[in-house]
Amino acid sequence: MTSEPQPTTPASSGSPLVSLRNVNKHFGDLHVLRDINLEVGRGEVVVVIGPSGSGKSTLCRAINRLETIDDGEIAIDGKVLPAEGKALAKLRADVGMVFQSFNLFAHKSILENVTLGPIKVRGMKGGEAKELAMSLLKRVGVDNQAQKLPAQLSGGQQQRVAIARALAMKPKVMLFDEPTSALDPEMINEVLDAMVALAKEGMTMIVVTHEMGFARRAADRVIFMADGQIMEEATPEEFFTNPQSDRAKDFLGKILSH
């Protein structure tokens, strides 16, 4: 491992918002992340694609330490991820996460799902949190469902609420772990549209997805992973028209041929 001096103060300059250095992780014998080095700048939208089992979801989950790593270093805004505890909780509050299976709090209303974080973590007043939540729900187009329970909403609506819930924390970066993989086809676009809008507003985003259309429309950079390694890094244009590695050519051939 290299031991360069680590920037500790967030500089408004070009310092990366998210940085991974020599990150390794094993699940038993399986080496799921191999020497991952990645830097994501402020306002950058990075799309991670790759075949199943390539480690892309694990990579995404490692960034807010829902998965621990064996060695290497992950830093957000210059702060290295601490071990479990108060400091980690504080850092996670700054990292929005959207899951494949939505994971809305099943016993709480849509509105409560969005206000819970601001009130309990940020210490916001109830009225203020409600106002914020309603404006975010409106932005993703589900404000008319505010009093319902998650199970009463469609998958697409639930995922948009999940995006609003993450945004309510005013995160520095948003992680999307296959946000449309559990959705019926007709609901995928409503979620992707919300994500594209977010990207256009300048949110820093790391998106694990199989939606190549989204990568083309919104990504600044595409990362192709296979076997736990980053095989290729390029602009969407470059990657889709002129992939370099055989793995990427093979992968694109399989998914774009029909």
Binding site: G85, R92, M97, F99, F105, G117
Partner: peptide
């Protein structure tokens, strides 16, 4: 489901508040 605890942690709740609220 495990996802409930993960979502709670992801918005910055530590163990006790996540247990109590979610």
């Amino acid at each position: 489901p495990l996802g409930q605890a993960e979502a709670a942690r992801a918005i910055g709740l530590s163990f006790l508040p996540a247990a109590r609220l979610i």
